[in-house]
Design a protein around this nucleic acid. Sequence first.
DNA 1: CATGAATGAGACTTCATTCAT
DNA 2: TATGAATGAAGTCTCATTCAT
Lengths: 177, 177, 177, 177
Amino acid sequence: MRADARRNRERILKAARAVFGEQGIEAQIDDVAKRAKVGVGTVYRHYPTKEALRDALVRERFEEIAGYAEEALRRDDAWEGFCELIWRAAERNAADRAFCEVVAFTDQSSIVEETGLAGSTALLMERAKALGKLRADATPVDIPIMMAGAGSVMRAHASPAVWRRYLTIMLDGLRAP
Amino acid sequence: MRADARRNRERILKAARAVFGEQGIEAQIDDVAKRAKVGVGTVYRHYPTKEALRDALVRERFEEIAGYAEEALRRDDAWEGFCELIWRAAERNAADRAFCEVVAFTDQSSIVEETGLAGSTALLMERAKALGKLRADATPVDIPIMMAGAGSVMRAHASPAVWRRYLTIMLDGLRAP
Amino acid sequence: MRADARRNRERILKAARAVFGEQGIEAQIDDVAKRAKVGVGTVYRHYPTKEALRDALVRERFEEIAGYAEEALRRDDAWEGFCELIWRAAERNAADRAFCEVVAFTDQSSIVEETGLAGSTALLMERAKALGKLRADATPVDIPIMMAGAGSVMRAHASPAVWRRYLTIMLDGLRAP
Amino acid sequence: MRADARRNRERILKAARAVFGEQGIEAQIDDVAKRAKVGVGTVYRHYPTKEALRDALVRERFEEIAGYAEEALRRDDAWEGFCELIWRAAERNAADRAFCEVVAFTDQSSIVEETGLAGSTALLMERAKALGKLRADATPVDIPIMMAGAGSVMRAHASPAVWRRYLTIMLDGLRAP
DNA sequence: CATGAATGAGACTTCATTCAT
DNA sequence: TATGAATGAAGTCTCATTCAT
């Protein structure tokens, strides 16, 4: 890919992050283009539909979170790693309106699978169960569920205190009795 | 209000319940009117904006749930009453796409307040705490939070098993340690 | 249908006739709306797609021509009736750019069938053959063929003399040897 | 012109023939470039507009047909030569969607003139008239007319039988009575 | 009061052509 | 000279809301 194309692609992604983050999935491609100081056509050249752009953003974020999961796996206490993963992911997502909307309303399990997040989380949870700290019946699907829930709580209630409270309860619910 | 006007209002509400329930907030007023066998103008006469109609539906549902809360208050064990309230509300909401979307994405606390649901729940939770069954730091805002979470889980994952699992974890998280 | 709706529908059709006639199938719906002094939405209410509007125009014209065919059937000499039909249809179409384009490039046989033009023409041709004036191997499909040919000649060559010459040759070709 | 430039020009023409032939005038320059394995810029360097490229293709074809006309002139019977010319040209054009569209909708007489096709045809027709086989009032403009008609028939009706029938009638119409 | 036709801003997307690399 | 990324006007269609009948 040519240097200028890569530069533009970056600009578009950056602009998209901002615009989607502020306005949610309803954000307009024209606004993204304007923000990126690029013609609409350029946006469409890189991402052939609005959905493609949105998915790129979502995937990017899940890749980042997959990175957190890798780090969490390196911790001694898998349960603590698990909790930290959840908290870090949530902190990261809190300001991103579109991401919250997407995970809250659509099943993103294929992306979760592809980014390796599913795998790492499964491993992490198994270990946490082995430690007797995670409830035995917890499953990897609980993660998307929590994220969906957290996403909507974040969208519906401005205050971080509210979603933090939500996560606290949720994690307590997941702790082994 | 004239008799026919009241009748129309009822028809509109009924149609709106069906249409919004099936199609979510994106549903069109025209469809509601068509279903109600009424002109769009009539819908707008009763509910000046789409939001007004949606709010009427939401309020109606919260009033129903407030009724459940009243019943729950009459039970001997407040914690059991609380759990039952949550489960009944969830069962009720599960099939209503628009309701899920609304509670998942917007703060409906004023309606919750006005319908008396806030008050009953507060009382119920106090009693459950007194029994030592609800965690001491639980607060009435946890209810809308749970509903937001459940709403999004319901929208994102078709299977009832998924949101039931979600509620189970959530209620376990709320149980006194 | 309400009086104002019918009036608008008429205005739209009239505007469409003019705009499509002048600019061909590429004409824009916005222009039709502007010409009809009506919002775009109104055009789309009456004709849900551009194609629907175009088809309405085409059908209208074929109905008119089907009327000519009825008249032609009432003439004593079927061959003369046939020729007259062709000439009248051509005169009618000559000024209509979109119609020429449509018949020149797309098979409109279903509309030809539905308007009854196919039937009348078949009858007319049978009689003309019985008189020994139309070549025995001529078939009703030759009509759309002639119209396609005439349409393109009309579009490609401004002068009426050119397409009249075309029709003359064509009809001579159809005359019994 | 440099050797590689000439080579590119050839590749572009070849690709354009294929792409326009398949998709008609609506074909995109990008597709031509892709097929030619060349950048769009290169196409535009050789042919400054889409029309220029299309015209090059049309001219090329008319030159080929002019060659047929030369051959036809060498035949003993000018009328037979004329008929053969028409048939050969038609067979050649039938598979070329863009060519059909161009001749069906635009007057290409200047190209017909420039390629010498006009001259050869005029001569051929004069001779055929002298033989008493071509109708006396036939003129060289009848050729583009027939081609326009045939082009549209070819586009509108998939089956070769249909346009062959068209040409048969047309040639019968041109035969001296 | 009821009706439903009309409105029109605004959304997404395409593609001929230009121009930086 | 070649490349192909960038441009952006323009086109189709939608839908919340208004208003004439």
